[in-house]
């Protein structure tokens, strides 16, 4: 018996396809599946949300309401106090919202406002620097009322849950995959929010027109924001970030509001 060892020329125990090619294919497949899932479940959210009436919503989220005593759950660092606005009730009846809503002021440099489920609207005090006039602030309030009216706050919570579920389901226990999928999902969600923002702006103009008879001051806040961005040294970074932000780029937003005003035929005001 002879011993005559040879080595195989070709290693058939491994795949010879380029690993990057396979990786790209799998990633594309995953992106498609995720987009489809997110789209379908997002539509389901959009279908369900209009069925939730403001009364039902207030009943369901009763325990999550901000009380004077329990204001700290939303933010550890910032104090929350009730905010009194003389025009708010009139704006609310212009928006045809029948349930009572509460305004809260949050001490924070951020110029931002949020409508929470249950009927709380938070105004971050940074807003007041950018919208000094009554009309300017009225537009912000009207915008948040429009979100409430459109049930956008419920939509965004619903979509947020969908996004978390989809990424969690697909990435399983792989932290690496989750860190890749989450920002991609957030970007998609931001794109979706931009269309909602635009719709809220349109209704806000209508509310303003109902209250004042004109829409003067509607763009005051954004114009002040724009001035600050121009003077800010990090303007370049802001530009980069706009894809991930839920609000349209400031100048585009002003143009959009102006366009909506012309379409609706409202008076520009003093």
């Amino acid at each position: 018996m002879k011993y005559q060892a040879r080595l195989p020329e070709h290693n058939s125990n491994i795949s010879h396809e380029h690993p990057l090619k396979e990786f790209a294919l799998l990633l594309a497949g995953l992106a498609i599946i995720m987009a489809a899932l997110y789209w379908a479940l997002g539509l389901a959210v959009d279908y369900v949300v209009p069925m939730i009436s403001p009364e039902k919503e207030q009943h369901w989220f009763k325990t999550m309401r901000i009380d004077k005593g329990a204001s700290h759950w939303i933010s550890q660092d910032n104090t929350i106090s009730p905010y009194d606005s003389p025009i708010f009730e009139s704006l609310r009846s212009c928006a045809n919202i029948e349930v009572p809503l509460t305004l809260w002021q949050v001490d924070s440099d951020q110029p931002n406002a949020v409508a929470l489920p249950g009927g709380d609207i938070l105004l971050f005090s940074g807003l007041f620097d950018h919208a000094p006039s009554e009309n300017g602030l009225a537009f912000i309030l009207a915008h948040e009322l429009a979100h409430f009216k459109h049930r956008d706050h419920l939509r965004s919570i619903g979509r947020g849950i969908v996004l978390m579920t989809v990424t969690g389901f697909i990435s399983g226990d792989s932290a690496a995959l989750a860190s890749l999928l989450t920002p991609a999902g957030l970007a998609t969600q931001a794109q979706y929010s931009q269309t909602l923002e635009s719709a809220a702006d349109a209704l806000a103009l209508e509310i303003l027109n109902c209250h004042y008879g004109h829409v003067g001051g509607a763009t005051e806040f954004f114009e002040n924001m724009l001035k600050e961005q121009d003077s800010s040294a990090i303007a370049g970074i802001e530009q980069l970030n706009h894809y991930f932000s839920s609000h349209p780029e400031t100048q585009a937003r002003i143009d959009n509001i102006e366009q909506l005003r012309q379409q609706l035929g409202f008076d520009k005001g003093p």
Binding site: M1, K2, Y3, R6, P8
Partner: peptide, 19 residues
């Protein structure tokens, strides 16, 4: 009858089912 011995050969694979 075994006339020549050519050494050890092996075959291996790692496979998974979809999620």
């Amino acid at each position: 009858n075994i006339t020549t011995c050519l050494g050890i050969v092996s075959g291996s694979t790692v496979r998974a089912k979809h999620a």
